[in-house]
């Protein structure tokens, strides 16, 4: 049984279908990718998976449960964490505080506990801090934990987002264009980090990416979509040689003639 299974997903905005009858699955312990040209609907798929958009119809099963009509925070609680295409850090807070947000859904201290500092509250605060520091150490940012997130260089901000997502203790990590804006060396580090997350933490990964090189290097299974439809699926080699994929990315022969 796949960890994530999507079937017949349909999403439309004001009558315009953005995702059409899309189906794909992600097996436990794999690194899968969702690729496609600009405007193919990749981020919309992510937003459906994470509960930010409400799909018109279809099935989304995660860990054997339907998450189709769940709210985003419930989905995160169920074990799916995401990063954003454009960084969405809590900029005026410290790096550590940012990462601590991930532990919110794994803890439960309420109002009275907070006011009276009950023993369980103190234990929980300690746990939140420890797990968050571990996540920061994992992405290599522990020494910057007290800096304001908004003041970090771009590459580091990305890492904060990763640490924050890891702090929710996910089973599946969704990465929305993780390589966007990174230089060549940073991309190499990114590849290592992705592989490291799976190996060390056993987290399954689904990424959306433009950078074909990166996708080819890390993913075991690639799903290609265009105009919201799946046009190909398979390993890097299979997908690369698929004429439909080449057409979607490069345009058809006829169009090229016109140019």
């Amino acid at each position: 049984m796949a960890l994530l299974e999507v079937q017949n997903l349909v999403l439309s905005f004001a009558g315009l279908e953005v995702i059409r009858e899309l189906g794909f699955s992600v097996e436990q312990g794999t690194i899968a990718s969702l690729i496609g040209p600009n405007g193919a609907g990749k981020t919309s798929v992510f937003n459906c998976l994470t509960g930010f958009y409400r799909p018109d119809s279809g099935r989304i099963h995660f860990n054997d449960h339907s998450i189709l009509r769940l709210k985003p925070h419930k989905i995160t609680q169920a074990g799916m964490a995401r990063t954003f295409q454009n960084l969405r850090l809590f900029k005026s807070m410290t790096v550590l505080e940012n990462v601590m947000s991930g532990m919110h859904c794994r803890t439960s201290t309420g109002v009275l506990g907070s006011i009276f500092h009950t023993p369980s509250q103190q234990r929980e605060e300690e746990l939140i801090r420890r797990v968050s520091e571990e996540c920061l150490a994992f992405v290599g940012l522990l020494d910057k934990k007290d800096r304001h997130a908004g003041n970090l260089p771009y590459g580091d901000q990305r890492r904060v987002e990763w640490a924050r997502a890891l702090a929710t203790k996910p089973k599946l990590l969704l990465l929305d264009e993780p390589a966007a804006g990174l230089n060549h060396d940073e991309k190499q580090e990114l590849i290592e980090l992705i592989l490291h997350i799976r190996k060390e933490l056993g987290i399954t990964i689904l990424l959306i990416e433009h950078d074909m090189g990166l996708v080819m290097k890390v993913s075991e299974k690639i799903t290609v979509i265009d105009y919201g439809k799946k046009i190909a699926e398979g390993t890097a080699v299979e997908v690369q040689s698929n004429p439909k994929v080449i057409e979607a990315y490069l345009g058809s022969e006829d169009e090229e003639d016109l140019l």
Binding site: T50, F52, K71, P72, H73, T76, Q77, A81, R82, F84, R88, L89, F90, K91, S92, M93, E97, M100, S101, G102, H104, C105, R106, R164, A165, T168
Partner: peptide, 19 residues
């Protein structure tokens, strides 16, 4: 902290599992 997360960025807070 949850209040502060929501105040700064509702969507990100929600994605982190905050109701």
């Amino acid at each position: 902290r949850a209040w502060q997360y929501v105040r700064e960025d509702e969507d990100a807070a929600e994605a982190m599992g905050i109701n």
